[in-house]
């Protein structure tokens, strides 16, 4: 009987503090590093197509991880223009949309990946006029984003993230 009180007090502390959850405020414009996992090309992608990239590094606020590295990031191809004739370069813009916090809530993001291939318009026209008109069919370079390329995305709005204590 005499051991009951300490045990009850111990249980009280475990229940109160052991399983408590921290709430962290993720403020607006917090940097989230987004990384591509595969190479992306303006030749293969279409405008409006949805892509999944990943978070490159943990997002830590007040010593707590609110978004883990490797979490999928939803992105949309904002514009994809393939390289064209007369040396026209390809362009690719990918807009970063959202990711998921450790508590499962969706975090809206703002950011983009942009790339433009090398234009060969001058060379194509010069060669087409001087040497052979077929040179006008020469295409510019595609807009490519290499695998592992990173970009800075910022959070939109404030979010309350619930972090379960271990």
């Amino acid at each position: 009987m005499r051991y009951h009180l300490p045990v009850i007090i111990l249980l009280f502390f475990i229940v109160t503090f052991g399983f408590s959850q921290d709430t962290i405020k993720l403020s607006t414009s917090t940097v989230v590093v987004v990384k591509s996992t595969t190479s992306l090309s303006s030749k293969k992608l279409k405008t409006g197509q949805e892509l999944v990239l990943i978070v490159a590094a943990d997002v830590v606020v007040k010593g707590k991880t609110v978004v883990k590295a490797g979490t999928p990031v939803v992105c949309v191809v904002e514009s994809a223009e393939s390289a064209g004739m007369v040396g026209q370069a390809g362009k690719l813009t990918i807009s970063v949309q959202s990711t998921t916090a450790v508590d499962g809530s969706t975090i809206a993001l703002s950011g983009n990946f942009y790339t433009k291939g090398e234009s060969k318009t001058g060379t194509s026209i010069a060669a087409g006029v001087i040497l052979c008109p077929l040179a006008l069919l020469c295409k510019g370079e595609e807009g490519d984003i290499a695998a592992g390329a990173q970009s800075r995305a910022l959070t939109l709005g404030e979010h309350e993230i619930v972090i379960p204590e271990k």
Binding site: V31, V33, A56, A57, A149, Q150, R152
Partner: peptide
């Protein structure tokens, strides 16, 4: 400033120094 330097550097945040939680 970020845009100014984007043509000369890849600006990968994990390969940059950070200050005030920003690369």
């Amino acid at each position: 400033l970020y845009s100014l330097f984007s043509p000369v550097c890849h600006q990968y945040p994990t390969r940059s120094f950070w200050i005030f939680d920003r690369p």
